[in-house]
Amino acid sequence: MSTVAKLLARKERLLEQLESDPGPNERQEIERLLAQIETALSLLVPGDAATSTDE
């Protein structure tokens, strides 16, 4: 599994956790991790990461 695929899989799991209505502290940690993933994706695949976050 490529690095990009691993990051996308992790992002998907975190987004699922956000949908389960976590507490404020957990939500903040999930959002922090998602921001890190977005940064990593933007460095690995310039231009593609921004379009994957549109909901």
Rank of each mutant, 00 (worst) to 15 (best):
S52H: 03
V4D: 12
I37S: 04
P46R: 11
M1S: 12
K6I: 03
L15V: 08
S52P: 00
I30P: 02
E55Y: 07
I37L: 04
L43I: 15
L7Q: 04
V4A: 14
S20V: 10
L44Y: 09
K6P: 00
P22T: 07
L41M: 07
R13P: 03
P46H: 10
Q17I: 00
Q17P: 00
A5M: 10
L14C: 07
P22K: 01
V4R: 15
N25L: 11
S20K: 15
T53H: 13
D54M: 10
Q28H: 02
G47F: 08
R13F: 12
D48S: 11
A35K: 10
P22E: 03
E31D: 13
K11E: 15
S42Q: 11
P24F: 04
K11P: 01
D48N: 10
S42A: 14
I37R: 02
R27Q: 07
R32F: 14
A50M: 12
V4N: 06
L41P: 08
Q17G: 00
S42D: 14
Q17D: 06
P46G: 10
S42E: 15
T39G: 09
V45K: 11
E29G: 00
E12Y: 03
S2V: 01
A5W: 02
E29A: 13
I30V: 14
L18T: 05
D21L: 07
L14I: 10
L8I: 12
L18Q: 08
T3G: 06
D54N: 08
R10T: 06
S2P: 14
P46I: 09
D21V: 08
P24H: 07
S52A: 02
L8V: 12
E31V: 07
L44M: 13
E12S: 08
E38D: 13
L14G: 04
Q28D: 03
T39I: 10
A40M: 12
G47R: 05
S42T: 13
E19L: 04
A9Q: 13
E38K: 05
G23K: 11
A35I: 00
A5K: 13
R10D: 10
R27E: 14
Q36D: 13
I30R: 03
E16Y: 00
D48A: 14
L41R: 11
S20G: 06
E55C: 03
E26Y: 00
A9R: 12
P24Q: 04
L14A: 05
G23W: 03
D54C: 06
